Simulated scan of single mutants.
Amino acid sequence: MTKIWQGISEFAAVADTGSFTEAARYLDISVAQVSRNISELEARLDIKLLYRSTRRVSLTEEGTLYLQHCRNLVSSLDEANRSITNLKATPRGLIKITAPVYYGEYHLAPLLNQFLVEYPEVELDLQLTNTKLDLIQGSFDLAVRLGQLESSSLIARRLSSRTQHIVAAPDYLAQHGTPQTPAELSQHQCLLGSVDGWRILNEQGKPFLFRPQGRLRCNSGPTLLDAALRGLGLAQLPDYYVKQAVADKKLTMVLEGSRMPDDGIWAVYPQNRHLSAKVRHLVEFLVKRL
């Protein structure tokens, strides 16, 4: 089984460098060993892969075809070796992250600070924005995103989940009534966020997008929470915004039977980051604590 691989790395190195000497230097072995292993490879295949002369080395037609497959094999082997090495590697270096403002400030930042405590060789660049930044263009290692993910080439790992609740102040409900069905929402003042609609279940239990109408639109969750507390209308907000106000009976959840199933809180990162020890350790750290 070992001999199946013998000579492949040497052949690829000679083909890429155009020299037995340079290939030997790259692989940190002797020129004689490079030549011997390639000769044995050619003997096993019963095919001549290289034209050798005193001045140059070139590929045969069969060697050109074989090289394409060898490069894939060498690349896969290198990637496998890196992944195993990274399992034991200590996270170090800069990690550039982006996350939504409120969630980043109140839920993510304390954990990231603790990560810095536990891994002193790591540096963090945290950019909080409610705008979805391009991770590749911005050279980000990681983004934390909320809710439904758009289809993309990014790798996603679920960190936690969130529940969207429709809430209102008791005084508002006493004055305007409590909606009993999703259809009744159209009769109420609704506090609008950055999205065009509220995802809820209709009376048949099927998802639909309700497009609310109201006097206030704002892309800030805390602003909508404050407006709801002041009795300005109904708001749909994640559980981490409203949990304490509901517990203190300052807000009341409505239409809980029409609530959508929980959606995700995600770590997303470019495909070329998934083998990085620092990113892998950070994602695992967040999964355990969120």
Rank of each mutant, 00 (worst) to 15 (best):
M1Y: 11
I4Q: 03
A13K: 02
V14Y: 10
V14S: 01
A15S: 09
F20R: 14
E22G: 08
E22T: 14
A24C: 13
A24Q: 12
L27M: 15
D28N: 15
V31D: 14
V31T: 14
A32K: 14
A32V: 13
S39C: 09
A43H: 05
I47H: 01
I47C: 00
L49R: 00
R52H: 12
R55L: 09
R55N: 08
L59A: 00
L59D: 00
T60M: 00
T64A: 04
L65I: 10
Q68K: 04
C70Q: 00
R71V: 05
N72P: 01
S75Q: 12
L77H: 07
S83H: 04
I84E: 02
P91E: 05
R92Y: 02
G93S: 05
L94D: 04
I97Y: 02
P100I: 02
E105D: 10
E105L: 15
Y106W: 12
P110Q: 05
L112M: 03
V117E: 06
Y119S: 12
V122G: 01
L126G: 07
Q127L: 11
L128D: 13
T129M: 06
K132N: 09
L133D: 08
D134T: 03
F140S: 05
A143G: 10
V144S: 03
L146H: 12
Q148P: 01
L149T: 13
E150K: 12
S151M: 11
S152P: 06
S153C: 09
A156Y: 08
L159A: 05
L159W: 12
S161W: 02
S161M: 06
R162L: 15
H165Q: 13
P170Y: 14
A174D: 11
G177Q: 07
G177M: 10
T181F: 07
T181M: 03
P182G: 04
L185Y: 01
H188D: 07
G193F: 05
G193Y: 07
G193E: 03
W198H: 09
E203Y: 08
Q204M: 06
G205P: 00
P207E: 04
P207K: 02
L209F: 10
F210P: 05
F210S: 04
P212I: 08
R215F: 08
R215G: 07
N219D: 07
P222G: 04
L225F: 14
D226K: 12
D226A: 15
A235C: 06
Q236V: 05
Y240R: 05
Y241E: 10
V242C: 13
K243W: 10
A245K: 10
V246Q: 10
A247W: 05
K249C: 07
K250N: 12
L251E: 04
T252E: 10
T252K: 09
T252C: 09
M253S: 13
P261G: 01
R273N: 07
R273Y: 07
K278W: 03
V283P: 02
E284M: 14
L286N: 11
V287S: 03
K288Y: 06
K288G: 01
